[in-house]
Design a protein around this nucleic acid. Sequence first.
DNA 1: CTGAAAGCGCTTACAG
DNA 2: CTGAAAGCGCTTACAG
Lengths: 359, 359
Amino acid sequence: MPSRLKKPQRPGAAPKARLPATTAAKAKRRPTINDIARMSGVSKKTVSRIINDSPVVNEETRAKVKRIIAETGYVPDPQARGLAFRKSFLIGMIYDNPSAEYVVSMQKGILSAIEGTSFQLVVRPCDRAKPNFLQDMRAFVERQRPFGVLLPPSVSEDEGLAKVLRELNCDYVRIASVSLDDHDVMLVTNDHMGGYEAGRHLAELGHKVIAHVSGPRSFRSVHERRQGFARALKECGLELSEKNVIEGAYTFESGLACGEKLFALKPRPTAVFAGNDEMAAGIYRAARDHGLEIPRDLSVVGYDDFPTSQRLWPSLTTVRVPVAEIGRLAATMLIKKTGVPHSEIVPTLTLRDSSTAPA
Amino acid sequence: MPSRLKKPQRPGAAPKARLPATTAAKAKRRPTINDIARMSGVSKKTVSRIINDSPVVNEETRAKVKRIIAETGYVPDPQARGLAFRKSFLIGMIYDNPSAEYVVSMQKGILSAIEGTSFQLVVRPCDRAKPNFLQDMRAFVERQRPFGVLLPPSVSEDEGLAKVLRELNCDYVRIASVSLDDHDVMLVTNDHMGGYEAGRHLAELGHKVIAHVSGPRSFRSVHERRQGFARALKECGLELSEKNVIEGAYTFESGLACGEKLFALKPRPTAVFAGNDEMAAGIYRAARDHGLEIPRDLSVVGYDDFPTSQRLWPSLTTVRVPVAEIGRLAATMLIKKTGVPHSEIVPTLTLRDSSTAPA
DNA sequence: CTGAAAGCGCTTACAG
DNA sequence: CTGAAAGCGCTTACAG
């Protein structure tokens, strides 16, 4: 390893100016807007206009500057832009969904949308039940001035948070089962369609006694999934009776508990639509504890299609939610500031081994 | 909703100065370092010294300014500090671990360490196999100038990346099963201890024919876990024979495939140490397919203790890795620029229902 | 269509 | 122990 002291500087011979240092620094320094302006023979304001895609620039000038930007590999400093804009290039994902699979899938989708841009993804888990929830969110937005935030359920359903964000002039996109806000800031996941698909599937298999283990009633998705499910049954001449609907909490444990209740029903249902895959896994466990075999004794349909649902035994028939795609679209909406049709996201039934005709 | 146009401005009556606007803006504007300086009767440089915990400040001055900072709720603008420092307040988590549970747990740990600070967590999944991996990482660091990055395995083992980070003068903390770097930038997870615990447990249960399904040999953790395991067996008078070691890929599918090979061994092992929980789940599936019952016909010990491992049936005996705590410690090391003893992280055996004495 | 000046809210380098 | 000046790399507001 060559010594850094090969050419020792004699303290007495200090140069007047710091020219050598400047030259050395210049060699490795990344170019700034000033360098591009000088090399292009225009003002830095013009370079700025080109960076920001301003339409009022002469096309020849634009082409020339763009060429030099490409040649030098210049990329504007996000810190400096952020300071001048009074807005950072951070996109916040504020979430309270407890599922690791959901969170990571959505992060991947968001990242795919911002790849190659100056945007960065900042994660902010939260708990709406905490007394200082809104205060914390306010502090985050005021200090970081994020470009915008993405709100998956259930935090997307919080009107208090939406109000704070509007007050602080912070853009957002809300992801929810139904529209709760202006078209351009709302990505709708159409959970009623997913519920409907689950209902058609079980009814068409010939089941007559059908149950539903729902999520907590405070979630919008719960109502949507249930109503879509009930509508499908009705179309097939069946009814989802109140006593066959058991409220869970979207967790494995609640699925287990609801499974117990389910097996106590008379007549015992031959099929169940679980509000999500987590609860479906709990129902699997309950079935095993009761010596019941899936799907012979009970058909099960889940919701979400988490990667682990394929590994359940038997593999779970479920409604697939394209979580990564949802993240990608939501981020795109935020950046482009345009909405997508509310029909864009389509939950689809994924057939596996946990559902069959009744015995 | 009150109209915003209650007091319409007459275009002809425009005020000379923009005083009204300024006043209105001041009312809601967050205080800056200049406001604090003015209110405290000191220069902004002194306020800056206090923000940055400089020791060379008169204690009375410091107390007074701190009081005013507290009263006004002043928080320095991270964008401005970032620009002046030439370093942002972002902490990057660069990872290639495919497990959602691992990623989210670590994120939580990191977030708990930076809560209440100006630091924000930015996530950067990556793929070391991509040809432009190092180039992408370089671009990220050059542009964002993160305060530092956190490297969990296996990206933590990439010497090329570490070199690039050092070149760019970007602080990092590497999380790995053994020390690969200077003490202060290395968080060691002591996987050999975890392997040892697994080995003692199975040996003490009385198993004589014991197998190991390892992860891919390119991972450091694989060797550590295996060697610790083999050492424990040796201490108990047993030997981990080469033919009883099957190499997997840390995935469910590879666990399934390795399980098949495992059951073909003669004599058939009565116990297996899986390199991680994912592969243990695959072995479960293979056992079911072969009509073997766990733990009666095969004891299984995993590694990681992911939340889902409790839900396997029977629940999985495994070595618990405190992933959130690792994230918290790594972030703390990065911020404080100090190491922790290499013995800090202790993997611990967690006894559940998948291991018992041989028949 | 283009640019000179001022400013975003901080810190560094220097001087005292 | 403290401060005035210059600067970080951009954009806004204005003028032409």
